[in-house]
Design a protein around this nucleic acid. Structure first.
Length: 484
RNA sequence: GGCGCCGUGGCCGAGUGGCUGAGGCACGGGUCUGCAAAACCCGAUACACCGGUUCGAUUCCGGUCGGCGCCUCCA
């Protein structure tokens, strides 16, 4: 596959460092608040990428940090009269809970910064020994930006340019305004750890260097996160890691575009945020995932209720095709959800030419899907292939000229594709329909046969009132939950 | 001001040096249907603007305009 690398600004063939094993690190949250929809984008990207790599037969180790020590956590704790640890624990738990609902699984490791103080100290120590860092009189340790020749290579900025307007804030003890803090000397009342430089705590960027290197080793495959992390966060990670190692830190830098609202970045400081947990109250998880994967990960996307509604309709269309497929084949691809007897339809016919045409469509879709994903994870294009096959399937379903076996293989192809995109929930259509509702539907069918349409319509309303929708199909009916 | 990304039809959103302009939504017309829903079939409207390269550019190059991100905490 080909992957875009923000550092070299080109797309090139991605071959894992360790044969068929992919090593990925994505920047996770700093837990001082609930995550918003914009924060969910890199999370979704990382897990979709993992699924895609696994579909290629590679194994993946995905590490996503949780930064649980930071100025903002401390500020929030002090404002609320709690400890920083309490704040961090509360929002780390909320983060896990919210992202779990997305149904994409977890990264392989989710290390906490405060569990890696020893590794952080070790890294800072090495930077001091290498001459890339210095201890200030107030006990802070700073990275000496001027000592790192290629500083600015990721954000494409020149040190001289950055020096314009840069200044040293009160309380800082830098030799150069560009220098950034690796280790902060403790102030009274702040959480602190023992170090060679006295009590203190890590700066913002160092934990990602320390944990990335610890779990994935030097020169790991992919480091990802939001575009807005390019500077200073990722630039500084490079300076720290490469300064300490003398070798390349990462092979591919992957950055997702921003989520905008009315052409402005969704951001906590702007205050235009929509929390993930709020979104999950209004929309099914797969609708949110669909919203993200319908566009390319590097493009900015516009958040609006309309675009989420649109994603909702796409999801419903996919769910419908899986429902129809389950009825036709008498089973679902996963055996997790046994089918309820929702439909009463004629037995499928099948024909050689029908089978062949569908098999071709399946092949074309699989190929198109694979090509799209192989070209820098083009999930939007891949999703188009899913819909294309969905239409072929619906069409064949209408003609009833395909064998159950051929249809099952189309269903399996669709199941595989939606899984990679993180939309596997749409394939789980073994929806339970209460006996009562099925009875109403059967009554309605009889009323229709007797051409008592007033009664039939009344029964349909009764079914709707119970949260279901009845659809007439040739030779019978189908009951599905009403879309929310 | 510096650096980077981007500008595709009513909307969202793929893609490409020329072949029949993915896909979704919306809209119009049909099929099916008591009605409806679902589904299928057909349909109009593109490639910001100006130059250049080329036999030929929406696709490559340059410029203009516009949008966004970063340069300060931010996914």
């Amino acid at each position: 596959m080909r992957l875009y690398d923000s550092l070299t600004q080109n797309k090139r063939e991605f071959i894992p460092r360790d044969g068929d094993h992919v090593t990925m690190y994505f920047c996770g949250p700093t837990v001082y608040n609930y995550v918003h929809l914009g924060n969910a984008r890199p999370y979704v990207l990382s897990l979709v990428a993992k699924r895609y790599f696994e579909s290629l037969g590679w194994s993946v180790t995905l590490v996503e940090n949780i930064t649980d020590i930071d100025d903002r956590i401390i500020a929030k704790a002090q404002a609320e009269g709690r400890t920083a640890k309490e704040v961090a624990e509360e929002f780390a738990a909320a983060y896990i809970e919210d992202t779990n609902q997305l149904g994409l699984g977890r990264p392989d490791m989710e290390p906490y910064a405060t569990d890696h103080i020893a590794e952080i100290i070790d890294l800072v120590q090495r930077l001091i020994e290498n001459g890339h860092a210095y201890v200030a009189v107030n006990g802070d340790v700073y990275y000496k930006v001027a000592s790192f020749d290629t500083y600015g290579k990721l954000s494409k900025q020149r040190i001289e340019e950055m020096r314009h307007g840069a200044r040293i804030d009160p309380g800082e003890d830098k030799a150069d305004p560009l220098d950034f803090v690796l280790w902060k000397a403790a102030k009274p009342g702040e959480p602190a750890w023992e170090s060679p430089w006295g009590l203190g705590r890590p700066g913002w960027h160092i934990e990602c260097s320390a944990m990335g290197l610890k779990y994935l080793g030097e020169g790991f495959d992919i480091h990802g996160g939001g575009r807005d992390l390019i500077f200073p966060h990722h630039e500084n990670e490079i300076a720290q890691s490469e300064g300490a190692l003398g070798t390349d830190f990462v092979r591919f830098w992957v950055h997702n575009g921003m989520l905008n609202t009315k052409d402005e970045k969704m951001s906590k400081s702007v205050g235009n945020i929509f929390l993930l947990r709020e979104a999950l109250r209004e929309y099914r998880p797969e609708v949110l995932v669909c919203f993200f994967v319908s566009s390319h990960y590097r493009s900015p996307i516009e958040f609006s209720k309309e675009s989420l509604a649109k994603a909702g309709r796409q999801i419903e269309r996919l769910r419908n095709v899986f429902r129809a497929l389950a009825d036709y084949t008498g089973s679902t691809a996963d055996e997790v959800a046994p089918r309820a007897p929702q439909a009463m339809v004629d037995a499928p016919a099948g024909s050689a030419s029908g089978d062949e045409a569908l098999a071709e469509a399946v092949e074309a879709a699989r190929r198109g899907f694979e090509q799209a994903m192989a070209e820098d994870l083009n999930t939007g294009g891949a999703l188009g292939e899913v819909f294309m096959l969905a239409r072929e399937v619906n069409s064949a379903l209408g003609r009833r000229d395909v064998s159950v076996a051929a249809m099952a293989s189309a269903r399996d192809a669709l199941t595989d594709m939606v899984f990679v995109l993180g939309l596997d929930a749409v394939a789980r259509v073994g929806e339970e329909v209460p006996e009562e509702v099925l009875q109403l539907a059967a009554d309605r069918r009889r009323a229709r046969e007797e051409r008592n349409f007033a009664e039939a319509d009344r029964l349909r309303d009764a079914i709707a009132a119970r949260g279901f929708e009845v659809r007439d199909v040739p030779g019978g009916f189908k009951v599905v939950p009403r879309q929310v």
